[in-house]
Design a protein around this nucleic acid. Structure first.
Lengths: 154, 154
DNA sequence: GCTATATCATATTGGAATAGTAGGATTTTG
DNA sequence: CAAAATCCTACTATTCCAATATGATATAGC
């Protein structure tokens, strides 16, 4: 039962971007450096979140990514869904097709549905604003190292 | 975010076995036929559940598998954990090693921990006894087809 | 004891998904 | 125009999953 590295990287990147909310776009290269994420891989992740309406971008020099909405309105669930595609725990409980013939009469399937709902609710009640606040608290506890823009979440 | 087919098959098999609780061992071949699960694959699944203490077995002719404990005491969580190994949603939040250096100061990691707990709690509150009862209710609604031992969950 | 019927253990394989790379087209700043 | 950035698509290596194969070990019944 695992999320892919996309979620792990993608959420870190999103928290990073959210930390500069209101300050103009953040470049992918910056994020990749700070968060230790492969540059070209990260490009795909922010692109997916942009297409999902979570991020917006400005192209060209001095361009980059920024939140499309205030951080209070962006949930972790939205991000994970954008990155992973779907949160269905098994093939037999999805948005689309079910390959199981007796799906309406399968006790096991009820289990997967409940798991899916539980996960969704847990991820929906966490907003990006929560995470930025928490990350700042963590960072405040660190011995200050670099001067610049570094949030240094890693 | 998906569980593998192991959980899907494994839970169906477990519900099947639980349906004969008290009646002596159930053979893997029977289960495979009723539940439409590849025989040798199923062998691996019940073996994992046996090693986890959920099932017990009798070898040799007339052998098979049976619940090691009453169905009320077996949770779906225990089964899924036995089948999948771990329910950690990402590499950075596991029982064992974390590959992330600043794990104690990462807001993203808190998210994965909460997701893990939510999933665990949802799966822990469902017992095998619940599922057997529910499956019987489903089966009772079906047009009766075969006479034999068939529970026919599929 | 012998045989049929099981579980038990381990290795191997094909295919799909994941994680990451590569190259270049397009857009914007200065 | 040049540099810096996003954007887009294809490719590749690796890992993981699902399934299969083979045989060893144990038990029931005759």
């Amino acid at each position: 039962m695992r999320l892919s590295a996309k979620s792990e990287y993608g959420l870190r990147a999103l928290i990073d971007i959210a930390g500069y909310y209101g300050d103009g776009p953040v470049g992918v290269r910056e994020i990749a450096d700070r968060q230790q994420i492969p540059l070209k891989f990260l490009e795909q992740l922010v692109s997916a979140m942009r297409k999902a309406g979570i991020l917006d971008s400005r192209r060209g020099a001095k361009g980059g990514f920024f939140l499309a909405r205030p951080p209070e309105e962006i949930t972790v669930f939205a991000a994970v869904e954008a990155l992973e595609g779907s949160l269905s725990p098994t093939a037999c409980v999805g948005e689309g097709t079910s390959d199981c013939a007796k799906s309406a009469q399968c006790a096991a399937q009820d289990v997967w549905n409940r798991a899916k709902v539980a996960l969704r609710e847990a991820l929906e009640e966490i907003s990006l604003a929560d995470l930025v606040a928490r990350q700042r608290r963590y960072d405040g506890m660190e011995p200050p190292e670099a001067a610049g823009r570094g949030s240094g979440a890693r």
